[in-house]
């Protein structure tokens, strides 16, 4: 029984995706590249030629900064590690991390937003004020600060990003739930004495899930970029220098840019590809879902 609302949400999303697929060539290209990226990311640890170097546990300074060759297709970095293996490991971690950030933020945002809309007025005011406050803070700095405070591991970056990311979803859910709470199918069960949790799960959640998933889909690219920006700028993302991370690899590659441009180019190109592909994908889905907001990217210029 309870699987029914979820089923229609899935139907909504798949029909949106197939519609977008039919109408938008950019979406088709980006979706195919995304599938390839995810496949490569999943297989990365198994197809990497030098998995121990990819992970960073093995270094070989005698082979430092070798140019691309059949042995090291993308060359080696300043510690003599195979760049291809590094990129393959980093890709998987980056995508996985951003998936976790988006998924957890989404669930947390929906829960916080829906309950806030049903909470007593005073609690509603306080929570929405806190959410506004979190939104007003510059998220990269806040995430960097939190990441440092939490110890500078990959997990701490994930947690920090969730803290800065979920308020967006909380706010959007809250606004949607506020519209829904005026409707009888939300109000009447509350008057009957059914619990708020029941009303959120049965009546509010299903009604806002589909649009929220669309938001999340179009946000994936920004999360990947934000993670990389933090690790690039602050280099604190990872406990030890050894762990593979695209942002850190770009930052470190920059030092040897003149002598060994391949160390910088490979991760930078992958990051750019992710950013472009995810953005095209996200914009296509978003525009198809809100036709009125066509050409939102014009606002960027």
């Amino acid at each position: 029984m309870s699987s029914l609302p979820l089923r229609s949400t899935i139907e909504d999303i798949t029909s949106l995706l197939t519609r977008t697929w039919r109408k938008r060539p950019g979406f088709r290209v980006s979706l195919i590249i995304m599938i390839v990226l995810f496949t490569v990311a999943a297989l990365g640890p198994y197809i990497a030629p030098y998995p121990r170097q990819g992970l960073g546990v093995e270094i070989d300074v005698t082979n430092a900064l070798l140019p691309p060759s059949p042995k090291h297709i993308l060359g080696t970095d300043s510690l003599g590690r195979d760049v291809l293996s590094r990129v393959l490991f980093a890709l998987g971690r980056g995508l996985y991390q951003s998936l976790v950030v988006v998924a957890v933020s989404l669930v947390l945002g929906i829960v916080v937003g829906s309950f806030t809309a049903l909470a007593p007025r005073s609690i509603e005011a306080v929570v929405s004020y806190v959410i506004e406050l979190l939104l007003a803070l510059p998220s990269i700095l806040l995430a960097a600060l939190l990441a440092i405070l939490l110890g500078g591991t990959a997990t701490s970056i994930t947690v920090a990003l969730i803290v800065t990311w979920f308020p967006w979803y909380a706010r959007v859910s809250y606004l949607q739930a506020r519209g829904l709470r005026e409707l009888d199918f939300v109000r009447i069960p509350l008057y009957y004495g059914l619990s708020r949790a029941y009303v959120v799960v049965k009546h509010i959640g299903p009604n806002i899930l589909a649009p929220m998933i669309v938001e999340a889909l179009s946000d994936m690219g920004s999360v990947v970029l934000e993670i990389s920006s933090i690790t690039f700028l602050f280099g604190i993302g990872i406990g030890s220098f050894e762990e593979p991370d695209l942002g850190m690899m770009v930052a470190n590659g920059l030092r040897d840019l003149v002598r060994a441009p391949w160390v910088f180019t490979a991760p930078a190109a992958i990051l750019a590809l992710i950013a472009i592909v995810f953005t095209v994908f996200g914009e296509a889905v978003y525009e198809e879902h809100h036709p009125i907001l066509r050409r939102r990217w014009w606002l960027w210029f």
Binding site: L4, L183, D184, F185, Y192, P206
Partner: peptide, 29 residues
Amino acid sequence: RGKVVVRIAQDPASALNPYLTIGEQLSTA
């Protein structure tokens, strides 16, 4: 409220949750 006196809303979209079957909504009530 909701027991002795009920209201049928002016806006028909208000009464029914679009994500649940009619049967489910009736059974819950």
